[in-house]
């Protein structure tokens, strides 16, 4: 099977002071995307290259009859490319009636995190992360960056 579809936990089960995230890994950093933004989670996909497209556009793929634009999150955030041969997964988000697949290294579990573990970006956060992050959550053993999906998808077309 090509696609793995994650079940979205019922929103109502999260308490008022808890937020639910889908976690993913990019360049060894754990990130989270609010669960409401996630339409789909996909495994390895056949991606058609789009000639002349900006480098962060990995190409397009076919998701049940809809054309989804694949965005390489590493490139988008200015991080070094993954070593060739690493498996990729993606998280599908929608904006302005278009579907976008964010290519990441790994998509992991869904976490429900209390809001008091949330903090704004520390000043020491590297620039490329700070530009696309809304803040971080302190987990037991590591930090999770909350991705600003709107920012990631705000790819301005070249005039």
């Amino acid at each position: 099977m090509d696609n793995t579809v994650l079940e979205r936990p019922a929103e109502t089960s999260a308490g008022r002071d808890e937020r639910v995230f889908v976690t993913l890994t990019v360049a060894d950093q754990l990130c989270g995307v609010p669960v409401q933004s996630v339409r789909d989670v996909l495994g390895e996909q056949v991606i058609t290259r789009i000639p002349l497209a900006p480098p962060e556009i990995a190409g397009s793929l076919n998701l049940r009859g809809r054309i989804v634009t694949a965005i390489d999150l590493r490139r988008r955030m200015g991080l070094p490319d993954a070593p060739p041969g690493t498996p990729r997964m993606s998280v599908v988000a929608e904006q302005g009636n278009e579907l976008y697949a964010l290519l990441v290294d790994q998509v992991s579990e869904v976490l429900s995190l209390p809001s008091d573990s949330f903090e704004l970006n520390p000043p020491t956060l590297p620039a490329e992360w700070a530009a696309h992050s809304l803040g971080i959550h302190r987990l037991a053993d590591r930090l999770m960056v909350v991705l600003d999906v709107a920012r990631v998808l705000a790819l301005a077309p070249e005039a």
Partner: peptide, 27 residues
């Protein structure tokens, strides 16, 4: 014919993209 995503609109060589019979996406 499906219009290309907004970020790709500036590429004037393409007027859209589509899904072929074998499921692949082409410009």
């Amino acid at each position: 014919v499906k219009p290309v995503a907004p970020i790709l609109r500036h590429i004037t060589m393409f007027s859209g993209n589509t899904i072929l019979g074998d499921g692949s996406v082409i410009m």
